[in-house]
């Protein structure tokens, strides 16, 4: 294939926070999902020389694989090419997978349209009760964009291959993608369900020039936090109505007799 590009992907920047991973149980392995975001090319993905994802079509995403921490060689061949003889369309040597992280390996176009292989670290720290996390990733051959949700820009000036992460109240938002600083809609609008306790990762992929821009969505569940408690009473129980009457009667009696005492005292 003529698409050969070798991208050295160094997974620096895996923060300590990424280690509190519900899905990736320990420090010895990481959850790795693979996204195919290069339009028009079905591929076979080889990991350390073994075919791991055959017939991988654009716009599809794998379930997370648990990979032991270590170094991996990733080679991506056009569907059906023999790795013994063909050149890979894309490859990454010595890709370092840390322990205890949640990653997405994405084959996508760079801003100028060159296929590339990139690794994103997914934020799987817990979300606050009632909130969802929205991650927006620019993985398309397109200029800088703004992402609007409910009419207002929530992400501004995002460029390939950057991302932005926001925690928002859970719910369905109507989102679209516009060229940065303009009203020119390039994607959407679409209703995106930001389910509580998830990291909903939205990728813009494809090529603006070739008219293949699209959205891909990855949802990581299980980041939820329960509410702190259930405050289900206000203290006005009516089966204590008799007590209320007694209390009022007592107060009234005290007031009447108190006035009597004061009046008698005043007469002294």
């Amino acid at each position: 294939m003529m698409l050969k590009t070798t991208t050295a992907v160094v997974l620096a920047g895996v923060t300590g926070a990424a280690f509190a991973v519900p899905a990736a149980a320990d420090d010895h392995e990481s959850a790795v999902s693979v996204l195919h975001g290069v339009p028009g090319l079905t591929v076979d993905v080889y990991v350390n020389g073994e075919e791991a994802i055959p017939d991988f079509a654009p716009g599809t995403l794998t379930e997370p694989m648990m990979l032991a921490a270590g170094r991996y060689d990733i080679e991506i061949y056009a569907d059906g090419d023999d790795p013994e003889t063909a050149e890979p369309a894309l490859s990454a040597e010595d890709l370092e997978v840390p322990g205890g992280a949640n990653l997405t390996l994405a084959a996508h176009l760079s801003e100028d349209g060159t296929p590339t292989l990139g690794a994103f670290v997914n934020d799987v720290t817990r979300t606050s009760a009632g909130e969802a996390r929205l991650t927006v990733r620019h993985a398309a051959a397109a200029p800088a964009v703004d992402v609007r949700a409910g009419g207002s820009a929530v992400v501004e000036g995002l460029t390939n291959p950057d991302e932005q992460v926001l925690d928002l109240p859970a719910g369905t938002v109507t989102a679209d993608v516009v060229l940065a600083g303009t009203e020119d809609v390039v994607l959407g609008p679409a209703d995106v369900n930001l389910a509580e306790g998830t990291n909903t990762i939205v990728y813009a992929w494809g090529s603006a020039e070739e008219g293949t821009l699209d959205l891909a969505v990855q949802v990581i569940e299980g980041l939820h936090t329960p509410p702190d408690g259930v405050p289900s009473g206000q203290g006005g129980l009516a089966d204590t109505g008799a007590l209320l009457v007694l209390a009022l009667a007592g107060v009234a009696g005290a007031v009447v007799t108190g006035r009597q005492v004061i009046r008698a005292t005043a007469r002294d």
């Binding site: 999902s33 693979v34 996204l35 990991v47 350390n48 073994e50 791991a52 994802i53 991988f56 716009g59 599809t60 995403l61 794998t62 379930e63 997370p64 694989m65 648990m66 990979l67 990728y203 959205l215 891909a216 969505v217 990855q218």
Partner: peptide, 10 residues
């Protein structure tokens, strides 16, 4: 290496 299931990312 497991062979992961996959789904459209639509």
């Amino acid at each position: 290496l497991p062979r992961p299931a996959r789904a459209p990312a639509a």
